[in-house]
């Protein structure tokens, strides 16, 4: 394939990854921002989103579109409720001590993963996309007769992949609006700013925390539902997604939502583009090392201001 179309294809693939990553990482970022909790089990909420989507579509059996819409509603609610419960039963009692919560969420990770294995099983299972037309994409070329359009071999995407990108944009815009304009968003930001002050002003911090933890998990679950028609649900799918989200949240500056989104786009696109130039394992090595060094030499992230 020619270089131009190849790069475009890689960027398109990168954009799908970026979209899903942005959703998932904003959940992680929200939880860290408001609660100062590093949620290692976040990847499992993503996995559960995909698994619940499979369960909903299988149980409902109402045709691809209706199934998918139902999954989009049910999965975040179920997973969010589970996470809120975990917050109230476990994290609250640890008093949100940073190190102990990390250990507890590692435990939660294993519990969720293994329970999924025991119930859902070890297979990767597919969910039918609500629509999935292959769209061949044109490319322009400057030839003898000036500009000409043609359809390069292999340059294509699917309508569903475009939908994922659009859906993520809409959802994230909604999240930003929610945080900026609503009273609930204000309360969350207030709690993030100063927990004790918020308590003093009568903010029910415990309830806010449960909601934030549940909400963060719901965002991961939504990402899981969106990806499952492309990737299938598998009980080990959370691990790599978690690592990528961590990278995104760090690069974006811990706890900064806008930074997270920019970083997700950066990481997603570069993942696609790097694969054009490097062998994939080497690419992953370089990317991981680069992120670690960012954290070492610029702990506030590439886009963050001073760390709070």
């Amino acid at each position: 394939m020619d270089f131009g179309p190849y790069l475009m294809l890689a960027m398109l693939e990168g954009a799908v990854l970026a979209a899903v990553l942005a959703l998932m990482a904003s959940g992680l970022s929200l939880v860290f921002g408001v609660m100062r909790v590093v949620n290692v089990a976040h990847g499992e909420f993503y996995m559960l989103g995909a698994v619940v989507a499979w369960a909903v579509t299988t149980l409902l059996g109402a045709g691809p579109v209706l199934n998918f819409v139902a999954a989009l509603i049910v999965a975040p609610l179920v997973v969010g409720a589970m996470a809120a419960a975990a917050d109230m039963v476990i994290l609250k009692r640890l008093n949100y001590d940073p190190e102990r919560t990390i250990v507890a969420t590692i435990g939660l990770l294993y519990i969720l993963q293994q329970l999924t294995l025991m119930t859902y099983g070890a297979d990767a299972r597919p969910v039918v996309a609500p629509f999935n037309e292959r769209i061949a994409l044109p490319w322009v070329e400057w030839g003898d007769k000036g500009l000409s359009f043609y359809f390069p071999w292999g340059l294509s995407t699917t309508s569903y992949k475009l939908f994922v990108i659009a859906a993520a944009v809409v959802l994230i815009a909604a999240l930003k609006l929610f945080m900026a304009k609503t009273r609930a968003g204000l309360i969350m930001r207030a709690t993030q700013g100063d927990r004790e002050m918020a308590t003093a002003f009568g903010v029910p911090v415990e309830r806010v925390y449960a909601l934030v933890f549940g909400g963060g998990a719901a965002l991961a679950a939504l990402a899981g539902v969106l990806i499952v028609p492309i990737q299938q649900a598998h009980y080990l799918m959370g691990g790599d997604a978690l690592l990528l989200s961590f990278i995104v949240v760090i690069i974006g500056g811990l706890g900064s939502l806008s930074g997270t989104i920019v970083a997700a786009i950066l990481i997603g696109l570069s993942d696609g583009i790097i694969s054009v130039f490097f062998t994939p394992t080497l690419a992953k090595m370089i990317a991981t090392l680069a992120v670690a060094l960012v954290l070492v030499f610029r702990p506030q992230g590439l886009f963050g201001g001073t760390s709070r």
Binding site: R93, V103, G107, L112
Partner: peptide
């Protein structure tokens, strides 16, 4: 699963 439960139980 046991490892997970042990971790959570310990921290608690």
């Amino acid at each position: 699963l046991i490892a997970g439960v042990a971790l959570v139980g310990l921290t608690l």
